[in-house]
């Protein structure tokens, strides 16, 4: 009976740092749970605005993920497959939001989409549309910050995928679009799903770009991270309860997604 790869014993030099890594990442969460004022939980959770902020967070993170899929998957394909020159520069440019402090990203969004911005002032003059301080601005800020996570993850999957399948499809007469749809997409679906989950989680926790570009208004632009930050200014207990709620919802969502949609991908 051959031992499966999953069952291999962990070499000791890896075991200790891995265990420390687990503690490092989970102890702060435990700290939150220990410090949570469970007796006040009901009152805090039903406080006005909490449900509103949570709903807004979930909706905007989901819309931002949708937008990221729409734009990010084609972008990842270009980065992984096209032979155009300047791809390295392009990759560096589109992943800048990963390292940019989000508040700076928020200011940068103002300069383009704000009502004084290059595109924003035109939108305002021509259509009377102003983006800042709307839920649209929240989705845009979250997409700006979160989409690179999806792009990187999908590009990695595309590079790892065996390009010969695509070549075979081409020799059998499939057009490039058909090849992409029927061969490439199913091939990298697990990578896309993993990227989407990362992207959603990042969007859900977004704070800096959102408060800068979208502002903070209950029901319109106040997402959970903003509510948590402001609660922290006055009532740390409330902030902890809100954080635990956000944590619970995102963990539950990720676990459910993994079971339902990523079942095989997760094990692969």
């Amino acid at each position: 009976m051959s031992r499966s790869r999953e069952g291999a014993p962990v070499p000791a030099p890896l075991l200790v740092p891995a265990a420390i890594g687990v503690l490092f990442l989970t102890l702060p969460l435990l700290g939150l749970l220990v410090r949570t004022p469970w007796s006040q939980l009901g009152a805090q959770l039903t406080a006005p605005g909490v449900g509103q902020a949570l709903r807004l967070s979930l909706v905007s993170a989901t819309l931002a993920t949708g937008l990221s899929l729409l734009l990010g998957v084609p972008l990842a394909w270009v980065l992984a497959r096209s032979r155009a020159r300047g791809r390295t520069v392009l990759r560096a440019l589109v992943t800048v939001p990963l390292v940019l402090p989000p508040v700076v990203g928020g200011v940068a969004l103002f300069l383009v989409l704000g009502r004084q911005g290059v595109v924003g002032s035109w939108l305002d003059d021509a259509f009377g549309i102003t983006i800042p301080f709307t839920t649209t601005a929240v989705v845009i800020a979250e997409t700006f910050v979160a989409m690179p996570f999806l792009v990187i993850s999908v590009e990695g999957a595309l590079r790892a995928a065996d390009a010969r399948f695509e070549d075979v499809a081409a020799t059998l007469g499939a057009g490039r679009w058909t090849t992409f749809r029927s061969v490439t997409l199913p091939l990298v679906a697990p990578g896309i799903a993993a990227g989407a989950v990362l992207c959603w989680a990042r969007a859900l926790g977004e704070f800096g770009a959102t408060i800068t570009f979208a502002g903070n208004f209950p029901g319109t632009t106040q997402t959970m991270p903003l509510a948590v930050y402001l609660a922290l200014q006055r009532d740390p207990d409330a902030a902890i309860v809100l954080s635990v709620l956000l944590l619970g919802v995102s963990l539950a969502t990720l676990l459910l997604l993994r079971d339902r949609w990523l079942g095989r991908a997760g094990a692969a």
């Binding site: 200011v107 103002f110 300069l111 704000g114 009502r115 004084q116 800042p132 301080f133 408060i211 800068t212 502002g215 903070n216 208004f217 209950p218 632009t221 106040q222 930050y229 402001l230 200014q233």
Partner: peptide, 20 residues
């Protein structure tokens, strides 16, 4: 009247100075 409740007075100043 407010359209946004900023985290501190700097946030308000930034939005005024940017003309937003």
């Amino acid at each position: 009247a407010p359209d946004t409740y900023e985290e501190d007075v700097r946030g308000v100043l930034t939005k005024v100075q940017l003309g937003e």
